[in-house]
Amino acid sequence: MKCAVVVFPGSNCDHDAFHALELCGQDVDFVWHKTGDLSKYDFVLLPGGFSYGDYLRAGAIAGFSPIMNALVDFAESGKPVLGVCNGFQVLVEVGLLPGALLRNENLRFVCRHVYLRTENNDTRFTDKLKPGQQLSIPIAHGEGRYFADEATIKSLQENNQIVFRYVDQNNNTGGDGNPNGSVDDIAGIINQRGNVMGMMPHPERAMEEMLGSNDGVHIFQSLLA
């Protein structure tokens, strides 16, 4: 697969994402946000960071950078797009995914490993995972509180678009697993068509056992298989 990692001014997980894809044996390019063409790629990853300094709202200004028209076309053609952290914020700002990401309920920038439960393993990003499989993956964000109105949450639930939920060590929601106050413990969602996924946790930072966890590998292997 020919993979693109989009680089905005202020991206800072672009090299981690590049490394993760390389570890999976993929051919990867960095693509500067001023590029208007993604036609030679099979997969686009929007990495974490603080694009445009998070000015106005996280992801808002990146959402209007030159590459976005190409990205929307790319997504509409059915090819896979993964947004991680700031990349997720960009995807909701441009409307490729529903909802919004708000300041964490506890006002802190939270940087630690969290537990995720796989809620939908019937997606191209998660089909190497078992239903309910628990993952330990780090988060690092100050604005990750997923929010959407009731009708949107209901439709996400009904269409099985909630892919990952924050859980406690025992794989249960409702305990102390939710690090930011996200509605319904949502950590990651997918669009109805199943080709655009956004998540706040960083699978690209969980690729090697010696760095604490390699649970992120399952996500990349699902996608790249």
């Binding site: 106005l56 709202r57 808002a60 200004i61 209007f64 909701v92 700002e93 529903p98 909802g99 919004a100 708000l102 929010f147 959407a148 109105d149």
Partner: peptide, 8 residues
């Protein structure tokens, strides 16, 4: 379009 995100 930009200044406000009308979702929130």
């Amino acid at each position: 379009k930009l200044l406000a995100n009308t979702v929130i």
